[in-house]
Each structure stands twice: as C-alpha cells, then as structure tokens.
Amino acid sequence: MPADRVITDDAPRNDNPYSQGVRAGDTLYVSGYGPVDPGTMEDVEGDLEVQTDRVLDNIAAVVDEAGGDGLDDVVKVTVYVADLDDYDRVNEAYGARFGETPPARVCVEVSRLPGDVRVEMDAIAHLG
C-alpha cells in the first residue's frame, strides 16, 4: 500500500526534506513540530504553556488535513524538551488538551531543538 504525503497551510511548512505528515493506510505519522505559528512562520510569544498549545495545534492541523479528528485520533506522542525541569509545565498544558483516554507518550530531554525552542513533539495517529 503506497503512503500519501499530507500537506496543509494550517501547520508550519518549510523547504526541509520531510513531509508534514505521511499516511500509510489508517496510520498517520506526523513530523515533529515546535511552537511555530503557521501564518507567520515565527515562534509564538508566551510562556511554555502557550508554546505547548501551539505545538499541539500544529499536530492537530496535520491530523485534520489527513481526514482525522485532530488530537482525538492521536495514539502516540513523543515530547522533546530542552530542559527536563520544564516537564511539569509541559505536562500540565499537554494534559489539558487530551480527554480521559490520552495517547501513549514518551518525554525526553534533548541537548538542543531546531530554532532553540524549548519544546517539540511528533505524533502517530490512527485514522479509522
């Protein structure tokens, strides 16, 4: 079964050699997103909670474009933080966006993220 590239103006786009998302059957793989506003292509202003919300908005936009139902269809998330001391703040904002059945998740501290942002996430969604 061939994979389909997902493209939307509602999530950040750039000239790097990767797709915003790739759908293979009922599975959607969403690329990593930082807190970038797709309209301005600039990092959003605000605290870590605002930035976490923007990251999740970007992921939801790709899921929606692929025919899914935003964050409701996300089954796995990887959270990358530049400082694990930010874990609780990211976790609180993240938890507020998911219902009673949150996706599986891992959170890792990394030495640096593109654009020197503090949080980035990628996701896998099931579109059924």
Rank of each mutant, 00 (worst) to 15 (best):
V75M: 08
V117N: 10
R89E: 12
A93H: 06
L113Y: 04
E100I: 02
V81G: 12
G46T: 07
T52L: 04
E100T: 14
D53P: 00
C107Q: 03
Y29A: 02
T78D: 10
F98V: 08
D53L: 00
V30H: 11
E49P: 01
Y29Q: 03
V50C: 09
Y87M: 13
E92D: 07
V106T: 13
D57R: 08
A66Q: 01
D69N: 01
A96S: 05
D37I: 07
N58R: 14
V79R: 12
V106E: 13
E42W: 09
N91C: 11
V44Q: 12
V36Y: 03
G32V: 08
T52C: 08
D47P: 00
E92M: 01
E109S: 02
G34Y: 03
D72P: 10
V117S: 12
R54Y: 03
D73S: 13
G99V: 06
G70H: 06
D116V: 13
V117Y: 01
A93S: 14
E100N: 13
V62I: 10
L84K: 11
Y87P: 06
D72S: 14
D73C: 14
V50F: 07
L56V: 10
F98M: 08
V75F: 04
R89G: 08
A96L: 04
S31I: 12
R89S: 08
D116T: 14
P102N: 05
D116K: 15
L71N: 03
R105Q: 09
D43G: 06
A61H: 00
N58M: 05
D86F: 03
P35F: 07
D37N: 15
A93E: 06
A82T: 13
T101K: 13
L28S: 10
D37L: 11
D64L: 02
G34M: 09
V44E: 08
Y80V: 00
T52V: 13
R105P: 00
E92T: 09
K76R: 13
D73M: 09
R105C: 03
V50R: 15
T101D: 14
T101C: 09
V81L: 13
E100Q: 12
V55C: 08
V90P: 11
T101N: 15
L113S: 05
V79W: 12
V106A: 09
L113V: 02
A104D: 13
V110Y: 02
V108N: 04
G46C: 13
D88N: 12
V74A: 08
V106D: 05
V44H: 06
V77L: 11
K76W: 08
V75L: 05
F98D: 11
G70R: 04
S111R: 15
D37R: 09
V44C: 15
V108H: 04
A61M: 09
G99N: 06
D83Y: 10
V36R: 06
Y80W: 09
G67R: 03
T78C: 07
G67M: 12
D83S: 12
D83G: 11
L28T: 07
G67N: 10
P35Q: 04
G46S: 10
E45R: 14
A82P: 05
V108C: 00
G115T: 02
G68R: 02
E109M: 01
G67Y: 08
D43C: 06
V90A: 12
D57K: 04
V30Y: 11
Y94G: 08
V108S: 01
E92R: 09
V79F: 10
V90D: 07
E42M: 15
E49Y: 01
K76Y: 15
C107R: 00
L48Q: 02
D73Y: 10
R105W: 12
C107M: 15
L71H: 07
T101E: 14
A60L: 12
